[in-house]
Design a binder for these strands. Structure first.
Lengths: 126, 126
DNA sequence: TATACATTTAGCTAATCGTCGAAATGATAG
DNA sequence: CTATCATTTCGACGATTAGCTAAATGTATA
């Protein structure tokens, strides 16, 4: 029951649900892409992602300098949940808007995304 | 997407999940039975129940002096979720313990439960 | 109609949670 | 071997939430 609670909590937040929604469509996304997509600080995105990984909802994979996340398809118990969420979320206003945003994010290479994210939270001169 | 979030949040709390779990087995329970089952203040149980009704997860029905709650089977979209939760929750330690507790609670008539609950939060003499 | 009483609402407190900026980590590329 | 840099951890802050007690509500019975 605790496991179940952890899973449910891990998708019961607006931004985490948006991550799930994005990964239902896009197979694999890297941390910087998700950070850009959500429009939050990198630390915030990282925390959400880590919570979802801990819950077993996402898996992560390192490649080069980036870390990619995807739905954890290894656990067949989760498939019905993914399908149920997908059925209820795709077609909603927010989901449509998000897919559009995501498409734009995916056109920018990770190098550029990360660089922008580094620069956005910095003091001017020194 | 907001509706979905409200549904998920309404079952992502330990006590609310226990309510759902109980109603997966027992069809219908009154507020005082759930209060006793959860071992919380009546106001607390009422708040949880009302949140689940608002989310569309539960329906309520008044009979005599008591209000009975049950899973909202009118919304077929929810059935897969109920089934998924049921499959993952029944058989867990907590669920087994809860079903045992619930059985004991159901042996006590509502009149007696309510009276006990009224008395438990009261000052001694005056 | 008046009283009893199951449930809900209101107001409060403590704990949890989402978010941020800054510092730490650890792996890669030069 | 060092410097770079994507990600994570840390520490802090404001917002939300679960829980309580006490008071209000509104229905049902006498």
């Amino acid at each position: 029951m605790n496991d179940l609670l952890v899973i449910l909590k891990s998708i019961s937040d607006r931004n985490r649900l948006r991550i799930l929604s994005a990964l239902l469509v896009h197979e694999e996304l890297c941390a910087c892409q998700i950070t850009e997509f959500l429009q939050v600080a990198g630390a915030t995105a990282s925390k959400h992602l880590s919570q979802m990984v801990t819950a077993g909802v996402l898996s992560k994979r390192k490649q080069g300098r980036w870390i990619y996340f995807r739905l954890n398809r290894d656990n067949p118990d989760l498939s019905p949940l993914f399908e149920w969420v997908n059925a209820r979320i795709s077609g909603t206003k927010q989901a449509k808007k998000d897919m559009c945003t995501l498409k734009q994010v995916l056109e920018i290479p990770c190098e550029e995304l990360s660089q922008n994210q580094r620069e956005s939270g910095r003091c001017s001169t020194s």
